[in-house]
């Protein structure tokens, strides 16, 4: 009997050790990546220093490298994607949980999950061969006509560029965000909703004041999941963003993102400084993602406090 207990304890210790090792592995891998990125980019870091982040110059011939246009493109394309995808996902998820009859919500739910399983290169090719021509023929001329006085919708309507990249990205992250949001809404206890209905609230009031408020943390979490995917998305963006190392205010103009620059230029970068600069771009992307994660955590914490105090 005692021996059996001892064996139990041993197994427990073993299991705990294995589990904590696996958990630690994540940190080890993260640290490994970070160290490797620093090591791989030390030439560029020591040569360009801080100006790497502020210079627009990207010239493999003269060996002058600056990441500003790539950082700008990454942030702008992601921002466009989030602006479109988050409200749309919210509405889709609400519809599925609150409004749609089960006979409808189930197949639509499956369809959304299926959308998430499409490889990104398919989105890229669809974007280039189908969506971009459609944009350039029908949508961009209209935008130019009515909003052309703003600096954002100027230049020839080519169908490719920052705007297209942002829209394609939004389509790609939409299924992730809406699937998680749907789960969040489903977890709102029926009792809470029913009591609100019992007090005479309309569906809209219940949705706004109960469902959304209850699931706020989950909704923000879902949005950041989408953001994380959008910011590092590579192939689809590379196909449609136009790949140009210049910053322009117009969303019709071509641009680039960190991931697309890496995808394009890594294979043929044979010079040491060039390769170092590309790896430093990867480091920048890593740090941006980290910063966003930290900001998200802080935000959630503050939210927890305010919601808790209510």
């Amino acid at each position: 009997m005692a021996e059996k207990k001892k064996r139990h304890i041993n197994a427990d210790i073993l299991f705990k050790a294995a589990a904590s090792f696996c958990a630690a592995l994540i940190f080890i891998i993260m640290a490994g990546i970070l160290i490797e990125l620093f090591r791989g980019s030390h030439l560029a870091i020591s040569k360009f220093g801080f100006s790497f982040l502020t210079s627009q110059q990207w010239n493999p011939v003269t060996q002058q490298f600056g990441a500003l246009s790539s950082i700008y493109g990454t942030l702008v394309s992601t921002a466009i994607a989030m602006l479109i995808a988050v409200p749309l996902s919210l509405v889709i998820a609400l519809f599925l949980v609150e409004l749609a009859p089960p006979a409808l919500s189930r197949p639509v739910g499956y369809a959304i999950e299926l959308l998430a399983a499409i490889p990104s290169i398919i989105y890229g090719m669809w974007g280039l061969f189908v969506f971009a021509p459609f944009l350039s023929q029908y949508v961009q001329p209209l935008l130019k006509k009515y909003l052309g006085f703003t600096p954002f919708f100027q230049g020839p309507p080519m169908g490719i560029g920052m705007l297209t990249a942002g829209i394609i990205l939004s389509l790609m992250i939409l299924p992730f965000i809406s699937a998680v949001m749907r789960d969040v809404f489903q977890m709102v206890p029926a009792v809470v909703k029913e009591s609100a209905f019992g007090m005479g609230a309309t569906t809209w009031e219940v949705t706004r004041k109960v469902t959304i408020r209850y699931g706020m943390q989950g909704l923000i979490g879902a949005s950041f999941l989408g953001l994380g995917r959008a910011i590092g998305e590579t192939m689809a963006v590379t196909f449609v963003i136009g790949n140009d190392h210049r910053i322009s205010a117009s969303l019709f103009a071509a641009g680039n993102s960190i991931a697309s620059t890496l995808a394009n230029e890594f294979a043929e970068a044979s010079d040491k400084l060039y390769l170092n600069s590309l790896i430093e771009l990867g480091l920048v992307l890593f740090l941006i993602t980290l910063l966003i994660q930290i900001a998200a955590q802080l935000w959630l914490k503050r939210l927890q406090k305010t919601v808790g105090s209510q």
Binding site: P60, P133, F239, N243, D244, A254
Partner: peptide, 28 residues
């Protein structure tokens, strides 16, 4: 600009691969 496998292009948009350039040219 100069001569290299990739250069700082003074104008235009970039397609990935020959097929990318062909697709862009056909569309614009």
């Amino acid at each position: 600009v100069g001569n290299d496998k990739s250069v700082a292009w003074p104008a235009g948009v970039g397609g990935k691969g020959n097929e990318g350039v062909a697709a862009y040219v056909q569309q614009i």
